[in-house]
């Protein structure tokens, strides 16, 4: 029967397969299979599978302590997995350039050198010669239209400026993937809104694959191409919907009925997962 279908209507079969796989047209960047991680309290991930699409912005949202940070830390290699494979376009992590932005910028930047030196540090690690390092930092600064005095020490900058510096430090190596763990949650509201726009601009211009953990549903949906909704631990994918709003997005996006509907759907799933306790 299956063979017959294959012979008679190959086009239709392919379409069906594409439908089943969700998005065959969407190339996969990060392939996660059988990911398992236990802490003292039990499993956070147990045989977890996920495909992160290439060049897309994925937001991760879920109940407190469900394992959002653990997921990106496992993918970024900050903590070891108990089992499972994680491949970036078929390559292992050590052959992949990644960037990581921490929530706590104050403890992530190096206070002993200037903001500029902080940004060029990963290039130094990669043994890029000094003139080339300067060129690349300059290019990034111009590209993002950053107006910060980068000769200052990090502790002389405002919180938002410091986080912008850590984002630049993560971007300067042209990473294939950028991870961000609640990057704006230590900033005040005005700064958060401003930084959201900065991040959206960076994404629109670079189209780097990004994975953002956020505890703000509106932010998560607003920035994302897809929203990864996790269940309570051991975390499973509760839903992974598309966010089809066109870019660049703006305040109007927030009141777009389709956006509001999608946000409502995510909230419903989130609350369903929270109540499962």
């Amino acid at each position: 029967m299956a063979a017959a279908t294959g012979v008679q209507a190959p086009g239709l079969a392919a379409a069906a397969a594409a439908g089943a796989a969700g998005r065959a047209a969407e190339p996969v960047h990060i392939t996660i299979r059988g990911l398992t991680k236990h802490f003292q309290g039990g499993a956070v991930y147990d045989n977890f599978d996920l495909d992160v699409p290439r060049g897309k912005f994925v937001s991760v949202f879920g109940p407190n302590g469900c394992g959002k940070s653990t997921l990106i830390n496992l993918i970024a290699g900050l903590i070891p997995a108990d089992a499972g494979t994680i491949l970036f376009g078929g390559k292992p992590l050590r052959e992949t350039k990644i960037g990581y932005v921490f929530q706590n910028y104050r403890e992530a930047l190096f206070p002993w050198v200037s903001a500029w030196s902080n940004i060029e540090y990963p290039l130094k690690l990669a043994k890029v010669p000094a003139p080339e390092r300067a060129r690349r930092v300059d290019r990034l600064v111009a590209h993002l239209g950053v107006k910060i005095d980068l000769k200052r020490y990090p502790y002389e900058l405002s919180g938002g400026q410091q986080q912008l510096v850590s984002i630049m430090r993560a971007l300067v190596v042209d990473p294939e993937v950028l991870f961000l763990d609640e990057p704006f949650s230590a900033l005040d509201y005005e700064m958060t809104l401003f930084m959201r726009e900065q991040l959206q601009r960076v994404f629109n211009e670079t189209r780097t694959t990004m994975v953002l953990v956020s505890h703000d549903l509106e932010e998560a949906v607003y920035l994302a191409d897809r929203v990864l909704l996790l269940s309570r631990r051991p975390a499973t994918i509760a839903d992974f919907p598309d966010v089809p709003m066109p870019r660049p997005r703006s305040d109007e996006t927030l009141s777009d009925p389709a956006f509001v509907l999608l946000k409502g759907h995510c909230l419903e799933i989130f609350q369903r997962e929270v109540r499962k306790a």
Binding site: I98, E107, F110, Y121, P122
Partner: peptide, 29 residues
């Protein structure tokens, strides 16, 4: 030494030795 700072250096590709010389030493000053 701040855990986050060590992790930051590690994720940027610093070897154990570079983490020691570039982060731990200065953190302990």
């Amino acid at each position: 030494a701040r855990k986050t700072r060590l992790l930051a250096a590690k994720v940027m590709g610093a070897t154990r030795f570079r983490v020691l010389t570039d982060v731990m030493l200065l953190e302990s000053l």
